[in-house]
């Protein structure tokens, strides 16, 4: 064990710039898919409220498909399957597309849950005041849903960060891939993966604290 320590720390120091780049790639991927997944979730949720039954059924089908299939399967379809159809995307593009489709489905579900708990008479009051349906959505529904689903949406960002560790499967050089390389070099798997776990824990804690701050800021009395 004593022999392993210097090798691990030496390698960690030696490869720190690569690990730093990996960490940056992980953060970049998490931020991008959290934003795109959030925006797609809003669109999917909104389409799910559409008066047209066919649109609603399509939205349900979309959500069932992406919630019911493993993310890695979708990413493999995009990475290994699409080139057979003549479309080749970069690892980053594959990941953004795959994650966005998956995360959007989950986020739409969180927003729908929050919507079901909303006092609908407010929506009618807004219509009676002369608001258009898009305005009702923007000024009445969305602000309340975003506030009440902050915990669920935050959890999703944390999942995004953790799930980004599968990105190495499509040759995206993120943090976990760098840690695997480090471990493979000195065989000190315990320290390497424990170090990776601690880094992920620090990042999720930062996200959690930021979400708590947002929640406190957006709290209004009587909120369910």
């Amino acid at each position: 064990m004593n022999e392993g320590m210097p090798a691990f720390y030496g390698d960690l120091f030696e490869q720190s710039s690569l690990i730093y780049l990996g960490l940056w790639a992980t953060i970049k991927l998490t931020v991008v898919i959290s934003i795109t997944g959030f925006l797609l979730g809003i669109v999917i949720f909104f389409l799910g409220l559409n008066a047209n039954a066919t649109v609603r059924r399509l939205v349900e089908g979309y959500k069932s498909f992406f919630i019911g299939t493993p993310l890695v399967c979708i990413i493999y379809i995009l990475y290994y399957g699409l080139p057979a159809l003549g479309l080749r995307l970069s690892p980053f593009e594959v990941l953004v597309l795959g994650f966005t489709l998956n995360v959007g489905a989950y986020n739409a579900g969180y927003l729908l849950t929050a919507y079901n708990g909303l006092d609908k008479s407010q929506l009618e009051a807004a219509v009676a005041q002369g608001f258009k349906s898009l305005q009702v959505y923007a000024y009445i529904i969305l602000p309340q849903l975003l506030k009440s689903s902050t915990p669920a949406l935050t959890n999703q960002v944390i999942y995004n960060l953790k799930d980004s560790s599968i990105a190495f499967l499509v040759q995206y050089p993120e943090f976990f891939a760098r840690m695997q390389e480090l471990a493979a070099g000195n065989f000190d798997f315990f320290r390497a993966y424990l170090f990776a776990a601690i880094v992920y824990l620090i990042l999720t804690t930062v996200i959690f604290l930021f979400a708590q701050y947002i929640e406190r800021r957006n709290h209004w009395p009587g909120r369910r």
């Binding site: 009051a125 005041q129 309340q144």
Partner: peptide, 27 residues
């Protein structure tokens, strides 16, 4: 046509002042 609902239907995320001003500002 001003409409006052049976259970008032105030916008729960807005203060009394903002409940009153929202339509003025946005409409």
């Amino acid at each position: 046509i001003g409409f006052v609902f049976q259970h008032f239907a105030l916008y729960s995320h807005l203060s009394a002042l903002d409940n009153i001003t929202l339509a003025l500002r946005k409409l």
